[in-house]
């Protein structure tokens, strides 16, 4: 497997999705508008109830902005994979002999790049209009995004592998996404959960999303350095998640394809 050859295939898949996206002019406008208006609506809510968030040495506006940016910048990876899973195209693409890992990276690439690009106006709005304060450690932030991407990418593969078999729904993604929005701390610090059921925030740490929000916030809001043992421990925890989940994701994706080939349903919706 030549790396350049595989990279060229990834670029081809991303280019195809980009051309497709660019061909829908109104969709381009609505995507951009949704991203900006989305962050604006959260900005109004956060400034209405701005309180200090001691866990990250910041305020609620900054805390929420980062949560929303992570949610719209990294999490769409799994959605990108599901949206591109058109079975007819899947069959013809697999017949070209493309490797599963190349295929998966290729079909999420454009969604990912687009989401990252959309973060720029969102970030600008958050900082200059709503007064979010970023206190970044750039190295930690890049590492946090890399670890988070691996976790989400693994989740996307698990989700896709199951979806290739079940065709319609994916209980794993559903559970993680619902659990994530409730317990992972996207909109509020997970310690807030303890005021309803004491000790419940401990369970949040079994969700990969919790680790993603946590390490990104540490590096973007608290200038978290890996030299700080507490920060390093958090990154280690997230890395363990990534290391465990990646092979599981790859295995599940390959299992899904093999199972669909065995059932003869690879081309079914």
């Amino acid at each position: 497997m030549s790396l350049t050859g595989e990279a060229r295939k990834i670029v081809a898949l991303a280019r195809r999705d980009m051309f497709q996206w660019l061909s829908y002019k109104s969709q381009m406008f609505t995507t951009l508008a949704t991203a900006v208006l989305g962050i604006a609506s959260w900005g109004f809510i956060a400034t209405f109830r701005n309180v200090p968030i001691p866990e990250y040495n910041t305020d609620y506006v900054s805390f929420l902005m980062v949560g929303i940016l992570v949610s719209s910048g990294i999490l769409p990876l799994s959605r990108g994979l599901q949206r591109r899973l058109n079975p007819w195209t899947l069959e013809t693409i697999l017949m070209t002999g493309v490797k599963p890992i190349t295929f998966v990276v290729g079909i999420v690439s454009f969604t990912y790049l687009l989401a990252i690009a959309l973060m720029i106006p969102q970030l600008a709005l958050g900082v200059y209009i709503f007064g979010a304060v970023l206190n970044m450690n750039l190295f930690s932030l890049i590492l946090a995004i890399a670890i988070s991407s691996i976790i989400i990418f693994s989740l996307a593969m698990i989700s896709t592998g199951i979806r290739i078999v079940t065709k319609v729904s994916d209980p794993v993604s559903w559970a993680l996404s619902t659990g994530g929005s409730l317990f992972a701390g996207m909109l509020f610090p997970i310690s807030h959960l303890d005021s309803f059921i004491p000790g419940i925030s401990t369970f949040s740490w079994i969700l990969p999303h919790t680790w993603i929000f946590h390490i990104v916030r540490l590096s973007a809001l608290s200038r978290g350095s890996l030299l700080d043992p507490q920060v390093a421990l958090s990154f280690l925890g997230a890395s363990v998640f990534a290391i465990i989940m990646f092979p599981i994701g790859l295995y599940t994706f390959k299992w899904g394809i093999r199972r669909a080939k065995r059932d003869g349903t690879l081309g079914w919706y």
Binding site: L13, R16, Q20, W88, T92
Partner: peptide
């Protein structure tokens, strides 16, 4: 199912598959 993207041109579709064939 032909596996082509409807919004792309015939040539763009072939270029895409040519890349996948290496």
């Amino acid at each position: 199912g032909f596996g082509f993207e409807r919004r792309l041109t015939g040539r763009q579709n072939l270029e895409f598959y040519a890349s996948l064939y290496g």
